[in-house]
Design a binder for these strands. Structure first.
Lengths: 294, 294
DNA sequence: GTGTTTAATAGGCTATAACTATGGAACGCT
DNA sequence: AGCGTTCCATAGTTATAGCCTATTAAACAC
């Protein structure tokens, strides 16, 4: 039983004629007759009585007609729903983001996108890189905003911006007044860093190592605000990304002048993953926030 | 969009693999891939994400899946309903019958058929031949029981029985005691006949004419019972078919011995008309009441 | 790395739905 | 009644398109 057979059947039933039905369906009359016969054969029942030049539904045909119509309608509805889904910028977008980016970067793009496309249904998952990648691979999130570079053959990444790193110092610190500093200036300072699962911890340690500095870690936390409070209390120093800067009476931020002392923020999607129209729209929306200059 | 594409799509969605789906659908894997791609092309949307060796529905695929399933289910339901209709002896049977046959012949066959197939839904239309033929052609009745022969290229007929004609006489009539009589014996008798629309009137006149008798008609009615009452009252005589005989104190029935003084009862269907299983069953049931002899 | 699994590609084959042309039956008209 | 017209079915042909096998490319497992 094929779709065109149902279409032809309905056309004959509605026009009461094979010839007119063939015209309506843009097909030669014998082709249509043939398909109707095939349908009748498969059903094991005559659907039409061919009475001279009038064609009339049999009882079985009358039973079959509404069902055939319903199927054609549902077929169209299924097609339309999928098309609608693609043509309108609406539907679910699930975004994963790491905690060291989420509060600083995401609010503005999300608010603007939500205003532009009220039909978009955004969900944000905040988690560390490893678990975000799991979710990305599991299809639970559509895209992930995290620190570049992302090794991993199965993801596609787009850089959004590269930001300088800043030393976070107590306001009373001897380096706090400088306009910039070198990481080697921080040697022997007690360090406060994020917990191991956070990738920015690795970034910070990495840049230190490159400057031949091995940080002495005295405190670990899950968020910058705890670290800042501790630093403000004079317990040590830290390194934070540019976007985490904020006005605080107890802390100073001094830019780290070392070559390559930076963090790159990017967005990742699963390679081969098909994105719906909203999802693609959000991705390019994010890219419009990328900063071309370093 | 074709039915097999929907089947393949559901198979892949359910098995999570093109290869397993191809096995399930008894088709080579490339064929299945091809049809899925074609479907995706028509919908303008990717339905599956091909992620390495795992295959997963896209959002659009998830939307499309339940609809595709529903369509396949309805397709089967439509097919099944038609099949059921043909396999079981149930459903509507509409029977037309002329008034000079209806009360005498039909009750027994109908009762037996109804007992044998309680699911059969019989309807009887009693009307004269001309209007029954109209209804037959209009598809309002499935078969018509009437007097043969039926001229008309567009009907198919089956003879059921041939019955002798009887002279209907007042009990006191001089011929009432005879075991049989000739039509010419009735010459000059006042005739009571059915109205013009009734074919049995024509039959009666026809047999008379053949016997060189021109009936002098003094009364016309729509039913035999009126005629019998009148005949019983001595107003004249009539001719009735064998099956209309009944025990009456005021009338006698004497068989007409003339060659070809008979009426043949048969059943007619519209040529080219497809009969459902019940309808065919009732037709052959009627034929089982045919009398081979005479 | 190597072997295995999986989906996509390529090319040939076949099945089938399309077409044109024609036949036959039914209906309308004169 | 004869004629022309209309309509569906049939016959034969063409072309589409779905299926196949063989192969490639990539991903995964060991």
């Amino acid at each position: 039983m094929e779709v065109h057979q149902l279409r032809y059947f309905c056309a004959v039933a509605e026009s009461g004629s094979f010839t007119r039905a063939a015209e309506r369906e843009q097909v030669a009359q014998p082709s249509l007759s043939q398909q109707i016969m095939k349908l009748e054969e498969e059903l094991g029942v005559r659907l039409f009585d061919r009475l001279g030049r009038t064609v009339r539904l049999t009882g079985s045909g009358q039973v079959f007609l509404p069902r055939a119509r319903a199927i054609l309608v549902e077929l169209k509805a299924a097609k339309d729903e999928v098309a609608e889904r693609q043509s309108s910028v609406s539907g679910p977008v699930s975004i994963g983001v790491i905690p060291t980016i989420a509060p600083y970067f995401l609010p503005l793009p999300m608010a603007l996108f939500s205003r532009k496309y009220p039909q978009a249904n955004m969900t944000v998952v905040e988690d560390v890189t490893a678990r975000l990648m799991d979710r990305l691979r599991a299809g639970q999130i559509d895209l992930a905003i995290l620190a570049m570079p992302m090794r991993g053959h199965d993801v596609e990444t787009f850089q959004l911006r590269t930001e300088r790193l800043f030393a976070l110092l107590p306001r009373a610190h001897r380096l706090a007044k400088k306009r910039k500093l070198q990481l080697k200036d921080l040697r022997d300072q007690p360090f406060l860093l994020l917990r191991e699962e956070h990738c920015f911890r690795d970034t910070a340690i990495e840049v230190c190592k490159r400057a031949r500095v091995t940080p002495h870690i005295v405190f670990e936390s899950g968020q910058f605000s705890s670290i800042m409070a501790m630093v403000g209390a004079g317990l040590g120093i830290s390194i934070v990304p540019e976007m985490a800067q904020e006005q605080r009476p107890d802390c100073s931020f001094v830019v780290v002048a070392d070559e390559r002392a930076s963090r790159t923020v990017g967005v990742a999607t699963l390679k081969g993953r098909y994105l719906s129209r909203v999802q693609r729209a959000f991705l390019s929306h994010l890219q419009s926030f990328a900063q071309k200059d370093n």
